[in-house]
Design a protein around this nucleic acid. Sequence first.
DNA 1: CTAACGTGCAACCACATGGTTGTAGATGAG
DNA 2: CTCATCTACAACCATGTGGTTGCACGTTAG
Lengths: 113, 113
Amino acid sequence: MVVDEAGGAAVDRIFHALADATRRDIVTRVLRHGQSVSTLARHYPMSFAAVQKHVAVLERAALVTKERRGREQVVHGNPAALRRAARLLDAYERIWRDRVHAIDQILAEDPER
Amino acid sequence: MVVDEAGGAAVDRIFHALADATRRDIVTRVLRHGQSVSTLARHYPMSFAAVQKHVAVLERAALVTKERRGREQVVHGNPAALRRAARLLDAYERIWRDRVHAIDQILAEDPER
DNA sequence: CTAACGTGCAACCACATGGTTGTAGATGAG
DNA sequence: CTCATCTACAACCATGTGGTTGCACGTTAG
């Protein structure tokens, strides 16, 4: 009935994290290879703290992870969460295309990670 | 590289519209067949006005359309926009999946990081 | 050791969001 | 016609968001 249910909040966080061009750009950027927060910050016309917040949002959505490396904090794309997000988008696409249900299965098999 | 370019704001609206469980539910619901706003509202534990706002958000994202039918306003899923959205999600998915796949390969052949 | 750098956090601001209630205009039912 | 229904919109409130600046702390470079 309710399509999300179990993973609802997580899905909220994922879509919300993706609803910002800067954050989408950060994700695609760090997927190439990890970058420190300050290195990332240099690419955007905003303060370091602002970029730091964006990274925090992506982190809460589990789309990226941070790895301490000396005094730097290296941001990586999170393969597992990204795959989950991709499959989630798949499921919605399928619903919309075929007008069938069956998204619950996908969410059920990988609940709230 | 830059997936957004022209439609950046539109992408923002689409992902933002999807970042709410109630709105996602409305979309899947009206895809089965159009429903009036008040009919929709009866399914959710919130006021009619709140549901009306959610529909407005979905409408701004072009994920649904409204059709006057007598005194009712029937909400439909917008097939064209939905397909475009699905394609858009596809594009992101492909980028990410390819990169994730590459990352997995690297990790697979060199387990110790 | 000292200075510079990278980070995290808090305070603050303007504005959007998600919810409420209330009101008013169209439209259909009786 | 009259009344109930559906819709739209405005005002309002609490909270969240995206941005800023400033400061403190740990770590690295010289």
